[in-house]
Amino acid sequence: MELTQMKPGEKGLITDISKINPLIQNRLLDLGIKEGERICYKYALPFGGPCMLEACGQCIGIRRKEAKCIRVEKC
């Protein structure tokens, strides 16, 4: 499933980030967003705003465009 399909408070495991632009993918890797990482989906801001998630003990905002390319598996 896509990251944007998760409901607030759900936890998941990132399974694929290969469809994201390589420059953005490197930035996400620097922030700890990588395949096999456990995340908690916090919420999505209204009017097409970013998606907030928690990974590696920090909250991160990701544009919906990139969030739709991240594949996750519910835990």
Results as ranks from 00 to 15, higher is better:
39 I>K: 06
46 P>N: 14
75 C>H: 02
5 Q>N: 10
3 L>H: 00
30 D>A: 12
58 Q>P: 00
4 T>V: 14
27 R>V: 13
26 N>Q: 14
31 L>W: 02
72 V>Q: 07
19 K>T: 01
66 E>T: 15
21 N>L: 14
65 K>P: 00
64 R>N: 08
58 Q>C: 03
40 C>W: 01
1 M>A: 14
4 T>E: 07
16 D>T: 04
33 I>T: 01
35 E>M: 13
34 K>S: 11
21 N>D: 15
20 I>G: 02
45 L>S: 04
14 I>C: 02
16 D>H: 07
50 P>F: 08
5 Q>P: 02
73 E>C: 11
24 I>M: 07
55 A>N: 04
61 G>I: 00
43 Y>I: 09
43 Y>A: 11
22 P>R: 09
55 A>G: 05
62 I>L: 11
57 G>T: 10
17 I>Q: 03
62 I>H: 09
7 K>M: 08
37 E>V: 13
13 L>V: 11
63 R>F: 05
71 R>K: 12
60 I>P: 03
23 L>R: 13
25 Q>T: 09
75 C>F: 02
26 N>E: 13
40 C>S: 14
33 I>F: 02
11 K>V: 10
12 G>M: 03
18 S>P: 09
57 G>N: 10
65 K>S: 14
32 G>I: 05
70 I>V: 12
55 A>W: 04
41 Y>E: 00
30 D>M: 11
24 I>C: 05
41 Y>A: 02
12 G>Q: 04
65 K>W: 06
4 T>H: 07
67 A>M: 05
16 D>P: 13
37 E>Q: 15
63 R>V: 03
30 D>C: 11
13 L>F: 01
22 P>N: 06
68 K>W: 00
54 E>R: 10
67 A>T: 01
52 M>T: 11
64 R>L: 08
29 L>T: 15
39 I>A: 05
14 I>M: 03
53 L>C: 04
9 G>K: 10
16 D>W: 00
28 L>D: 04
17 I>L: 06
9 G>F: 03
50 P>S: 15
48 G>T: 01
65 K>T: 14
19 K>H: 05
30 D>R: 15
70 I>E: 04
55 A>S: 14
18 S>C: 07
59 C>H: 13
63 R>C: 05
29 L>G: 06
16 D>N: 15
28 L>H: 08
70 I>C: 07
30 D>G: 13
52 M>P: 00
69 C>Y: 08
1 M>R: 13
36 G>T: 07
56 C>W: 02
42 K>V: 15
10 E>I: 10
75 C>Y: 04
28 L>N: 03
50 P>C: 11
54 E>P: 03
11 K>C: 13
13 L>A: 05
51 C>I: 12
50 P>T: 08
46 P>I: 10
2 E>Y: 03
27 R>N: 14
49 G>Q: 10
51 C>S: 06
56 C>V: 12
24 I>H: 08
50 P>W: 02
32 G>E: 03
57 G>F: 00
33 I>D: 02
56 C>P: 00
11 K>A: 12
35 E>R: 09
9 G>Q: 09
50 P>Q: 10
60 I>E: 03
71 R>S: 06
61 G>E: 04
26 N>I: 05
1 M>Y: 07
71 R>C: 03
44 A>E: 09
36 G>W: 07
